[in-house]
């Protein structure tokens, strides 16, 4: 089981390369298929020919008229939402994976340090004030960053920094946000309450084209690829990592910032979609091992597919009625996770 001692692998063996290619290629293919499925399902009938025509038209290959309704449904509704689902899913899964390494705790998820709590307070405040979706997203982002600085500052305040100190500070701060959220829910007005609950359960109906969130995801993936090797060494414990030349403290700070900002970006777009960030990294770790060079990109891809599939179900399962996507992620994720856990005989969890 070479991948359990990844620190020693200075370069990929031929077999490892094939394996990585197989997994990443397979997951990428799954994402493309999920995207097709998402673009083709909904209340309005859209067929593959419509999409093909639209692509040809957009790229200037053809000037034949496209079905106007299908075209707007794809470009205005389904495509922005689907791309957003892919980006949010990838961000949450990646953030969860980084958080689990940082806190050395299998129960860690992107929200454990209160980022989503801070974002929720911001978003709910804007909803209560009757502001538009731009402000809801904006204040969610501000809330998330406030939490990031607050937890970081508090866990450093005494001059002693450790992941467990960070975890405790974060968990308690999250509980504080939880209290504020409960208070806001109990004084909210009916019409707003529905919007607030959907935000809290995670909902992609507000999603627009991911824009800078997508760019940010790509940057984060690049950074995490650079961190993969030191992360592999961290798995063997802080002391060993130090001995192997890893600058542990800067690495932890980077992990914290990266995971927090990824989470902030995700919740800004979709609210607090639960569960994904906890379970996707575990499923992948159980299936492909904990070599972060493969694990990090694979986790991002798997999170992207899972969220997109879940969102497609959320909007079509009882159509025309809509469910919050957070409900569906758990419905799919729980059995998949338990199944992978049952058939796995690795000792990683």
């Amino acid at each position: 089981m070479t991948q359990d001692r990844p620190g020693k692998n200075v370069s990929y063996s031929q077999q490892q390369k094939l394996r990585a290619l197989f997994w990443l290629g397979g997951l990428a293919l799954a994402c493309i298929l999920s995207l097709m499925l998402s673009l083709l399902t909904g209340s309005i009938d859209v067929v593959i020919a419509d999409i093909w025509q639209l692509i040809q038209y957009q790229t200037g290959l053809s000037h034949s008229p496209v079905n106007a309704l299908s075209a707007t449904v794809i470009t205005e509704l389904r495509l922005p939402r689907s791309l957003s689902a892919l980006v949010v899913g990838a961000e949450l899964a990646l953030a969860g994976c980084l958080m689990q390494v940082l806190l050395r705790n299998p129960l860690a998820d992107p929200y454990v340090l209160g980022v989503s709590g801070g974002a929720a307070v911001g978003a709910l405040f804007s909803i209560m004030a009757g502001l538009g979706s731009f402000w809801v997203s904006g204040s969610a982002f501000v809330g998330a960053l406030t939490n990031l600085l607050l937890v970081f500052g508090l866990s450093h305040a005494s001059g002693v920094w450790s992941p467990s100190r960070l975890l405790l500070t974060g968990v308690v701060t999250a509980a504080g946000w939880g209290a504020v959220i409960s208070f806001m829910l109990s004084i909210g007005e009916d019409n707003q309450l529905r919007g607030m609950l959907f935000w809290l359960m995670g909902d992609l109906s507000r999603a627009t084209l991911p824009g800078w969130h997508g760019l940010f995801l790509l940057i984060s993936l690049t950074i995490s690829a650079l961190l993969a090797r030191p992360l592999n060494m961290m798995l063997r414990g802080e002391l060993q990592a130090k001995a192997l030349g890893v600058a542990v403290y800067p690495l932890q700070i980077t992990l914290y910032l990266l995971a927090s900002v990824l989470t902030a970006s995700a919740v800004t777009q979709a609210g607090s979609v639960g569960f994904l960030g906890l379970v996707v990294p575990h499923i992948l770790r159980l299936s492909i091992g904990s070599d972060h060079r493969l694990l990090l990109p694979a986790t991002a891809l798997a999170g992207a597919c899972l969220l997109l599939l879940a969102d497609t179900l959320a909007r079509t399962l009882i159509a025309p009625q809509q469910l919050p996507v957070g409900v569906i992620t758990a419905f799919i994720g729980v059995p998949v996770f338990l199944w992978v856990l049952q058939k796995s005989n690795r000792g990683t969890i």
Binding site: G42, S43, I44, L69, V73, L77, R194, F198, S205, R315, A319, P320, Q321, Q322
Partner: peptide
């Protein structure tokens, strides 16, 4: 629809 205040999507309105 079977709930008193159902939540729907834009596509459903387009279709209706």
């Amino acid at each position: 629809l079977n709930t008193i205040a159902p939540r729907i999507d834009v596509e459903a309105v387009l279709k209706a």
